[in-house]
Structures are given as C-alpha cells and as structure tokens.
Design a protein around this nucleic acid. Sequence first.
RNA 1: GGAGCGGUGGCAGAGCGGACGAAUGCGCCGGUCUUGAAAACCGGAGACCCGCAAGGGUCCGGGGGUUCGAAUCCCCCCCGCUCCGCCA
Length: 424
Amino acid sequence: MLDIRLLRTDLDAVKASLSRRRIDTSELDRVATLDVRHRRELSEVERLRAEIKRLSAGVGQARREGNGDEADRLAGESRALDVERAAREVAADELAAEIREVMLGIPNLPSDDAPDGGQDEHVLLRTVGAERVWADHQRVPHWDIGAERGWLDPERASRISGAMFALYRGAGARLLRALTQLALDRHADAWEEIRPPTLVRSETMLATGALPKFADDAYHVERDDLWAIPTAEVPLTSMHRDEVLDEAELPKRYTAYTPCYRREAGSAGRDTRGTLRTHEFDKVELMAWCTPDQAGEIHAEILRRAESLIVDLGLVYRVIDLCTGDLSFSSRRTFDIEVYAPGTDQWLEVSSVSWFGDFQARRGNARYKPAGGKGTEFLHTLNGSALAWSRIWPAIVETHRQPDGTVLVPEVLRPYLGGADVLK
RNA sequence: GGAGCGGUGGCAGAGCGGACGAAUGCGCCGGUCUUGAAAACCGGAGACCCGCAAGGGUCCGGGGGUUCGAAUCCCCCCCGCUCCGCCA
C-alpha cells in the first residue's frame, strides 16, 4: 500500500509515477478527495470527543462534591453531544473504509531506475551462453523426452487431477528431488531455511499483494477460508507481520521450499503440453527483510545467487530488467531470469527478483526500530525464486539430452543422485 | 468434536467502572562512577492519526452494547493455550 501522505503532498508526482505503469490513475483523484473529507469529519469527531471527556470529568467531580444537580446538567449536555459525535463517526468510518478499499487496489510506484516501457518491452541486460550451438538431439521438447523415457505421465496426471497438472516418475521425479536439495543447500550459508504453512489466511495474502485484486488466480478453500499459496513469498512476507524488529537483527534472510498453486485463470489452452504451465509446482524461494539502505545490496545478492545456480546447472540464460508496464503489482523493480530451452525453443521465466520497497510491509504493518533513533519505520522486502521445478526441469532435460536420448547430469547435481552422471 | 483457561506497551506481566496510556521486571537510550567495560546508582523513553505549530485525538485481540464515563460490566466473532476424543 502507498503512503497516503504522498497523495496529500505530491499527488502529481504519484500520478506521474503510476502512469509509467501504463495504468489509469483516475482513482488517485478520488482517494485524494475522499481523504480531505475524511480528515474533516475526523477532526470534528475528535473535537466533540474532547468536549465529552471534559464534561464527563466534570460529572465525576460534581458528584464527589455532592452537587447532584450540576452533575445531571453536565451529563445531559454530554449525552446531547454524543448523538452528534456518533453520526459523524459513522460518516468518518465509511470514508476510511472506502479509502482503504481503493488504496489496496493501487499498485506500487515503480523505481526511478526501472526502464519505461509497456508489457511486451524489456531491457536485456545480458545473455550468458548465447554462443552455444545446438545439435539436433537437443531440439526435442521435454514432453517428448518425458514420454520417451517414461519420466512424465500426463494421461495419469489428468486422470488424477485434470488438465495442467504434472506427474513425474522414476528418474524424472528423482531429478526434481535432487534439484530441490541442491538449491536449498546452496543458500544454507546465510539464508535460514523455513518450511512455512502453505494454506494461509486472507490477511496473509493481502499483505503480499495477492489479494484483493488477484483472488481469481488463487485456490480458495471456502469451508475454512484459507488460501493455497501461489508462492512461498506469501507466507514469508507475513513472517514479521505486526512485529517491530530491531535494526541490529537486520537483514533477515529466509529461504523456503514449498508447493505453489495457481489457477491460471485465463490461461486455459496455453502451454498445454509439458510442465511449463501447471496448477501446482514446487519452488525454492529467497526472501529478505531489511532497511531501505540495505535493499540495493540484497537485491543484487538474490540475483547473483539465482544466476550462479543456473550457471552451475549448465543452462543458457538471460537477465532482463522489467519495464514499468510489466512490473508486478507490488514491485518497484524486477529483474527476470529466463532460461533457454532448446527443445521447445523458448526462453522460460525461472525467477523474478523483486524489490518491493515498504509496500508489502505497510500492508502487513511490519516495522523496525532504527538503531539509536526513535519511532519506527516500515521494513523493505525483497524476493526471488531460486529454483522453480516446472521451468528448470524442462530446460535441464532439453539442454543436456545426449544423442542416445539419455540426459547428462550436471556436475553439481551428481552428489544428489547417488553419483549418477547420466539419467537413463 | 467436547470441556476449561487466556489475549494489556519491544518482551514478560499487574490492574477488573472515574485520579489508568496503564504498576513492576527485563530489554533500550542518556548520565554518574571507571584507564575502558561490566556491575551499581540516577534520569529518559510506547505506538499511531490529524495539525505549519501550539495542541488535540485514538489504541489494553476485533466488532457491537450498557454508562455522563469502559482495559475493567454484557453480547457476538477471531486467535492462542491446556485436557479429553479422533487422527497421518
């Protein structure tokens, strides 16, 4: 959520910034108007309440002095004022609720550094491995490899759960487990491993920015009013909700391995083959809490870590600086890592490394106490995927497919596959 | 699912109709002492909102109610804990 004070002092700047996202900014004018009215009602309510408090103190005093008539007179006066107070308060509360509702639907301000551009534009920062030459045996899509080797079983997956679910088997399944373990181990040096709940409350979804706008994209367990997380970012971003941390304990770095659930509403019929787009996939995520000063370095660190794993897996990839029109709702700046899958001849998004500023912390009321200073400040949050099953798996089997149809195991993965250098 | 107990400041924990934004302890900040630190002692400090400021207001899980006045009484809800039952 944006700081509403920004709308009071700098409405034009906020509008200019949000229009870089290529969205309609008329809601901002509406909030600004409502805000003025809200504050007017609020100060009137407060004036009345102060008066009532004064009168009430008088009642108590008059009573103690045995002056019953005076006490009754003051009580009556107070009662009359309270009628007006109640009416004004209802009006103020309604305005506050309306303001909140609109504010929750307004996306974050893009960073000044984020490149301008629409949804289909992006700034390519670098491509690693572009010079690589692909042989015919690497031009086989992973769904064919999966069928050929018995690693993927789409018929049974849909028998069990329907379209857009994956069922991996044998060495294919084992490869996933190895990848997960590898990713988790790589960050154990500085990132605390978390295994959070994956069914969460509405407030938890709201703090991240997954609600209220994107309710249709998530699975909702109605009977218990719980949501299946679309990413570990959701529970991790509520780890310190309603807390006040000491600056000395920052930054806090977490890594979590969880399943992720997405309804993919509106994507039916797209990417129907293979594992690229599924309702459920597992992912290892990196997520950090820090001060504004630390955010830049952490952002770089997450990107560095995500890239280095991909390098070690022997994959070709590129890094993209997302344009303002393509930035996700809560993000101020995002770098996407896309891995090249030679069999499907596609660049697959495997990680979005994002800086959210204090946007999520504000929604979740997560603050810190600056060392030596007084008061509290909102934390900054950042995150990025370290490894997403549904995209890394195809890239690996396609990239490392050998002429005989087997798949060469990247060096770093071998210890996790009992030393095997080839998957047959 | 049944029974009981509880939710108060950064944390722990008193208070149970008016003088309570709230004792006390821990933690935190400043000072005295010390070569320095620790200890001890003295002092300070809650969060949030409105306001240029002076100042005002809100906040004792959330929401209603009673009352001139609610942390305190009543109702509903949420969350947590304990015991029993069920269960991977």
